[in-house]
C-alpha cells in the first residue's frame, strides 16, 4: 500500500515536472491558436453578411456569385483549401506569406461562407409581415434591414454561430499542416521528440478550456437576446 502511494507520488511529481518543461512551447502554440481564432472570427463574421445579402438579391449576377462562393467554400474540405492557398498565395502575390496570414485568409474565406448561410437562414426566417409593416410605415429598405430584420435574426443565428465558433477552435488544429506553429503542431512536436503522449493530453485540456469558455459566453449572449421573447409578468 505504502509502496503504491510512493510510486504514485513519484510518478505524479515526474509528470508535473515534464508538463512544466513542455508547457512553454504549448502555450506559445496556444497563443498562435488564439490569434488564428480571433482573426478568423473578427473578419469572417462581418464578411458573411454581404455574402448573405448578396445571396438573396434579385440582381442575378451578384446572387449567382455569392451562392457559388458559398457552394465552393462549404463544398470542399478546409484542409484542401489550406493546402491550396499555401501553394497559391505566394504565386498570386509573388511573396512568401507568413503561415499565420495564409491560415487566416483561408479560414476567413471558409467561415464567411458558413456564416453567410446561417445569416441567410436567419433573415429568411423573419416573417414577411415585418417587411410589410416597415414598408407601410415608409421605412426605407436599408433601414428595414438594419433596424428591423437583422436585430431580430440575432436570436435565431446566435446558437448556430456559437456552434461554428466552437468548431473553429478545433479547426485551428488543421493549420498545423501548413506548418503553422499552433497548439496542435506544438503538442505533436513534443510527443514525437519525447515519445510521450502527455503533451496531447495537455493540448486536449487547453482546447477544452476554450470550448468551455465559448459555451459559457454563448449561453450568456443567448439569454440576453432572447429577453424580448420571454413572456414575463408584465
Amino acid at each position: 500500500m505504502g509502496e503504491f502511494f510512493s510510486n504514485f507520488a513519484t510518478e505524479f511529481v515526474e509528470t508535473a515536472a515534464y508538463i512544466g518543461i513542455i508547457l512553454p512551447a504549448l502555450l506559445r502554440g496556444t497563443l498562435v491558436m488564439v490569434q488564428l481564432f480571433c482573426w478568423t472570427l473578427l473578419l469572417s463574421l462581418p464578411l458573411g453578411l454581404p455574402i448573405a445579402l448578396g445571396s438573396n438579391m434579385k440582381f442575378w449576377p451578384v446572387r449567382i456569385f455569392c451562392r457559388f462562393y458559398v457552394f465552393v467554400f462549404r463544398g470542399t474540405p478546409l484542409l484542401l483549401q489550406l493546402y491550396f492557398f499555401y501553394f497559391f498565395l505566394p504565386i498570386a502575390f509573388g511573396v512568401r506569406m507568413e503561415e499565420l496570414t495564409t491560415a487566416v485568409v483561408t479560414f476567413v474565406l471558409n467561415y464567411a461562407a458558413y456564416f453567410a448561410e446561417i445569416y441567410r437562414g436567419g433573415i429568411n426566417g423573419i416573417d414577411r409581415g415585418q417587411y410589410e409593416a416597415a414598408k407601410a410605415l415608409g421605412i426605407s429598405k436599408t433601414q428595414t434591414m438594419l433596424g428591423i430584420i437583422l436585430p431580430q435574426t440575432m436570436r435565431i443565428i446566435l446558437p448556430p454561430v456559437s456552434n461554428e465558433a466552437i468548431v473553429l477552435v478545433k479547426d485551428t488544429a488543421l493549420a498545423s499542416v501548413i506548418t503553422l506553429g499552433e497548439l496542435m503542431k506544438a503538442s505533436r512536436g513534443a510527443v514525437n521528440r519525447d515519445v510521450d503522449a502527455t503533451a496531447y493530453v495537455v493540448a486536449a485540456v487547453i482546447y477544452l478550456m476554450f470550448t468551455f469558455l465559448l459555451t459559457v459566453i454563448s449561453n450568456k449572449l443567448e439569454k440576453r437576446y432572447s429577453l424580448y421573447n420571454q413572456r414575463e409578468a408584465g
Binding site: 416573417d127 415585418q130 410589410e132 415608409g138 421605412i139 426605407s140 433601414q143 433596424g147 428591423i148 431580430q152
Partner: peptide, 24 residues
C-alpha cells in the same frame, strides 16, 4: 393595420410607435 398586427417584437410598445417617426 394588419390582421396579424406585425409589431416589431424586438422593440417595446413605445419603440414600435416612435421608430418610424424618428427614422423616416
Amino acid at each position: 393595420v394588419f390582421q396579424h398586427f406585425n409589431l416589431f417584437p424586438h422593440m417595446t410598445c413605445l419603440g414600435n410607435i416612435t421608430y418610424a417617426p424618428i427614422k423616416v
